[in-house]
Design a protein around this nucleic acid. Structure first.
Lengths: 192, 192
DNA sequence: CAAATATGAATGAACGTTCATTTATTTTTA
DNA sequence: TAAAAATAAATGAACGTTCATTCATATTTG
């Protein structure tokens, strides 16, 4: 294995370990010592790859947010009809939230605590632009209600976070048939 | 002032201080020393009213959750027609989330981090029973889609948490007219 | 005055971070 | 190419600080 790859490997192991521990116990109950141990590395080694704990968390946040966006827009292009395009993105997001549970749980936690620096959080929002554009087009074409993007987001993407958490606690299963019902509810909420 | 009331006062001050500090910095960045100082009390005094920090947090959670429920069902009774009853509850919840911001923010944080013991969290859910009963009746009468309570919750109550957070960050205003639009989206999502 | 209430200082454990070394790898030299 | 030198990567122990909690003492109350 080339030298460059090895470096990346250790960094990745640290990010993964942080994800796991923060999910299980929260930011401040995920001590650097445990992160290091789980990543198979000495505590001091973390500081070769990250400035400090906050930098580690911020980096992880942007990394995960970015991978989320890549998934969200797989198979999507802006020339598709509004409903079809929305359907593709929505199911992508649903798949992500229900399969990449660790990553999705981490993002939920970040969105609801003062864990992430506000600037970094803004940075992570940029990835969603294609969806905002799609909504804008849908409104112009009279297909989607003239609601703000925040409301559209609150009713199409955000509920999935809740359902993911419920599934994770074994309170609620979400097979394909149910996901289709959920999509219908989503569409009913935002369609004109 | 009677003795009993004084005790209650100090306890209340401690709970309020905890709420504020946890909202601003998160559970583990809200040290007992600062909680005590903000409540105008010596650190040791906390332990006269609470077993330990986790007990303080759990108590606060149940307290807030309970006051939330009281608000949610104000003016509601189970003999109202399904849509009317739902409308009353929904607007109550919306008012709570948009006015009692500190309490609502705290609950959001609790719902998305491992801050609260799982047992205590289950305890806090019981208060919502009248809404679950209303949904059940709505389904029987063919007014509401036959979805699980989790999905109904995800599409009617949960989005308000997101919109509250956005309003709090000054990213989005929510005047009466917009709240009415949001209610319409909610109803479209769950109505048969 | 005795019981209840409250205190501030003290305690030990745990934390993030640093630092003097060691170990591994790469480059230079003969 | 093989030994020597230089550099990079990684380490574990140690530091100063902060934390939740306790305790001996003081104040308030009935």
């Amino acid at each position: 294995m080339a030298k460059k790859d090895k470096i990346t490997d250790k960094k990745r192991a640290l990010l993964k370990a942080t994800l796991t521990l923060v999910n299980d116990h929260g930011f401040h109950d995920a001590p650097m010592s445990k992160i290091a141990k789980l990543a198979g590395v000495a505590p001091a080694t973390i500081y070769l790859y990250f400035e400090n704990k906050q930098d580690l968390i911020n980096t992880l946040y942007l990394e995960v947010k970015s991978s989320f966006s890549v998934c969200a827009f797989k198979g999507y292009n802006k020339d598709l009809p509004v409903k079809k395009g929305f359907e593709i993105i929505w199911y992508n997001v649903a798949d992500y939230k229900l399969n990449q549970i660790d990553e999705a749980t981490f993002l939920s936690q970040c969105d609801n605590t003062p864990m992430i620096d506000e600037g970094v959080r803004k940075e992570g929002l940029k990835h969603l632009q294609p969806l905002l554009d799609l909504w804008e087009r849908g409104k112009k074409e009279g297909i989607i209600k003239p609601l703000s993007v925040f409301i559209l987001y609150a009713y199409t993407i955000y509920p999935l976070s809740f359902l993911m958490a419920m599934q994770e606690r074994n309170l609620c299963g979400l097979p394909k048939k149910v996901r289709d019902e959920i999509f219908q509810a989503t569409w009913d909420a935002i369609k004109q």
